[in-house]
């Protein structure tokens, strides 16, 4: 993180523009640092000996432990989509398309995004906090002095696990969500179950599914990198030392990942449409 440089005051408007420029430079510098951090971590996933056991541990922590929350959120999202969709479609007498509406919005959009947001809240924050605490208690320096590459040891397995887990959790979210839509649409609102399922079969194409998956891969990279980065550089944060530094790092890990996920979602959608 670059420190903003104090400039001698010349004149107010010049200062204003200088401030914008400085922030822009900082932002771009930070962006570059995050990218390099990600590529470094990604590259070291494939270094030997392969850290299979550690990746599995993180898959368990990020993935398996998130299944319950993902199913709950997925179920209720699907159910509310069913209700809202029915309410809008029935006005045009086309409630038969409810299955398609629920499935498409889940697979293309809500599945990857909501799953990512839930994982940020559950696993991302704890990744940032754990790595942040390791940083402030010199455990990362200790790894370095033992000639254990801290990026390889701490970051790579988390990135690898995220890339494996995000698409799986997204798929899981989609399926549970469609079940939720089925519950409200068919069981509660009495749409014919055959019509509901058929509209899903006829409207969902492979391109929709792959779009959802591409998104979940990108979100995995964003979330794991940002959360690890914020924790890893806790000590560089201006004004944040010790426990306060870790709390700030965790907060900004969550906030930045959420915002970036939504921005990336828009960008990806507009490219993949």
């Amino acid at each position: 993180m670059m420190q903003p440089q104090e400039q001698s005051a010349t004149s107010a408007p010049l200062d204003f523009f200088a401030g914008i420029g400085r922030r822009a430079f900082n932002f771009i510098g930070e962006l570059g640092a995050v990218t390099i951090f990600f590529l470094h971590g990604l590259f070291l996933i494939f270094s030997l000996p392969f850290q299979f056991k550690k990746i599995v541990q993180h898959i368990y922590f990020i993935g398996v432990k998130s299944v319950l929350i993902i199913s709950l959120i997925g179920l209720f999202t699907g159910m509310v989509l069913g209700l809202q969709g029915y309410y809008s479609l029935v006005k045009f007498g086309s409630e038969g398309l409810l299955g398609a509406a629920v499935a498409l919005s889940l697979i293309r959009e809500l599945g990857p995004v909501l799953a990512a947001l839930m994982i940020i809240g559950r696993a991302g924050s704890s990744i940032a906090a754990e790595i942040g605490i390791m940083r402030i208690s010199e455990q990362i320096d200790a790894l370095d002095t033992m000639d254990i590459n801290p990026v390889r040891y701490l970051i790579s397995p988390r990135i690898a696990a995220s890339i494996i887990v995000f698409p799986l959790l997204t798929a899981f979210f989609d399926v549970i969500g469609i079940v939720g839509g089925y519950l409200t649409g068919v069981v509660m609102l009495q749409i014919n179950s055959g019509i509901f399922m058929n509209s899903i079969y006829s409207s969902v194409e492979w391109a929709d599914v792959s779009e959802g998956f591409i998104k979940s891969f990108v979100f995995a990279a964003i979330v794991s990198t940002i959360c690890c980065y914020e924790g890893y550089f806790t000590h560089m944060r201006p004004g944040g030392f010790g426990a306060r530094g870790v709390s700030l790092a965790t907060t900004s890990a969550v906030v930045i990942s959420c915002v970036l996920v939504l921005i990336a979602d828009y960008v990806l959608t507009s490219f993949l449409m």
């Binding site: 208690s137 455990q139 320096d141 200790a142 002095t145 000639d147």
Partner: peptide, 20 residues
């Protein structure tokens, strides 16, 4: 450098034990 680093151990002031 790797060989040198491997021949050195560092004991930190706050021990820096891995707490997990």
């Amino acid at each position: 450098w790797t060989a040198f680093k491997r021949s050195v151990s560092y004991m930190f002031q706050q021990n820096a034990l891995f707490d997990s």
